[in-house]
């Protein structure tokens, strides 16, 4: 883990804070005076993981930069629910241009700041998985390649939720979306397609790449903090469950994000200059079924008869991640 666990407490390592912890051991989110970069009154659905993830990331970035940060947003849920004219939920300088050009606009903002000699102001580009992995992918790759001083954050909810749950390059195999119907011999999204954005980002050998979920707040904040210590292109990929698109209970958003990591389906790690430097170990390993069952987008796997073959293929993906990233503590792996 990026951060040593606080050993002695009831909930020192995992909950947002604790009255008994020193201030610096609590999360930014436990701070009475946190900046609430994304304030209330926004129109995200009940239990929105993206709203939560964006506030976590930006509040941490604002603390790390003493509020000197500009956000550039791609089109998507996050943009739509936060800024229906004339309202805005943003409590920081925020720019929106197009669906596919957020990384390029962020590069431009960074260039402008450089020209003005404002080295103290930092830039964050952000968008959903559609705007990042599909539509904005060329701009993102260019931003990485040029070495622009931008932290790009992808809030990954694994489909185009804003426009009605269409498949994206981040949609997992077998998931039902509006464009991958649960019919036929291979229901839902196809196996073997899609792309792994964090690994592609690593292939650019940029200074920092990390993944995180909204379930591990301390870990996520530590990664934002680390990213803000570095300069050059950086990439943070945050898994943000979507109750609407995934067909889950609004109360289960964090639970599902936690299970994504604990099954091994979503490996949580960080990499510097193309090499993995730390991995969040699985704490209580569970079978993928426990994760899948909470989501109606996988309901067709649990019909009569259940598609155990498909579930097994998903389990194999999780097992591969466990091996590939070394997600188990050594004693367990042995």
């Amino acid at each position: 883990m990026a951060r040593p666990p606080v050993k002695f407490f009831q909930v020192g390592s995992f909950a947002a804070g604790n009255r008994l912890l020193d201030e610096e051991e609590r999360s930014v989110q436990a701070d009475h005076g946190r900046s609430n970069a994304l304030t209330k009154g926004h129109r995200a659905c009940q239990g929105c993981g993206e709203a939560l993830g964006a506030r976590y990331v930006l509040d941490a970035a604002m603390r790390a930069t003493e509020n000197r940060v500009i956000a550039v947003n791609a089109t998507g849920c996050l943009e739509v629910f936060s800024t229906p004219y004339p309202e805005s939920s943003w409590q920081l300088p925020w720019v929106h241009s197009l669906f596919g050009n957020a990384p390029a606009v962020a590069s431009g903002v960074a260039a402008a700041l450089k020209a003005k000699g404002r080295a103290d102001v930092r830039v964050i580009g952000q968008g959903g998985d559609g705007g990042t992995l599909d539509i904005g992918f060329a701009c993102l790759s260019g931003m990485f390649e040029r070495g622009d001083d931008v932290l790009y954050v992808c809030y990954d909810n694994e489909a185009y939720m804003n426009t009605g749950v269409q498949r994206s390059g981040a949609t997992p195999p077998a998931a039902r979306t509006a464009t991958t119907k649960p019919v036929g011999a291979e229901p839902g999204n196809a196996f073997g397609q899609g792309k792994n954005a964090p690994l592609i980002a690593m292939a650019h050998e940029i200074p920092y790449v990390a993944t995180a979920t909204v379930a591990e707040l301390h870990d996520l904040e530590a990664k934002v903090e680390r990213a803000m210590e570095l300069h050059g292109p950086r990439y943070l990929h945050v898994l943000v469950p979507c109750p609407l698109g995934w067909g889950s209970e609004s109360r289960d958003t964090i639970r599902i994000a936690r299970l994504a990591k604990e099954t091994g389906l979503f490996p949580v790690f960080e990499a510097e200059h193309g090499e993995v430097v730390s991995v969040s170990k699985i704490r209580r390993r569970v079978a993928v079924e426990e994760y899948l069952r909470l989501q109606r987008r996988f309901a067709h796997l649990f019909g009569d008869p259940p598609r155990t073959d498909v579930i097994e293929r998903l389990q194999a993906l999780a097992d591969r991640n466990v091996r590939r990233f070394g997600l188990l503590e050594e004693a367990e792996a042995a």
Partner: peptide, 21 residues
């Protein structure tokens, strides 16, 4: 080690996890 079952012990978690502040 007490879990403080059923009684708030000021862990800030609810404050942290609310998507709507």
């Amino acid at each position: 080690r007490c879990l403080s079952c059923g009684n708030c012990f000021d862990c800030d978690n609810c404050f942290g996890v609310c998507p709507d502040n």
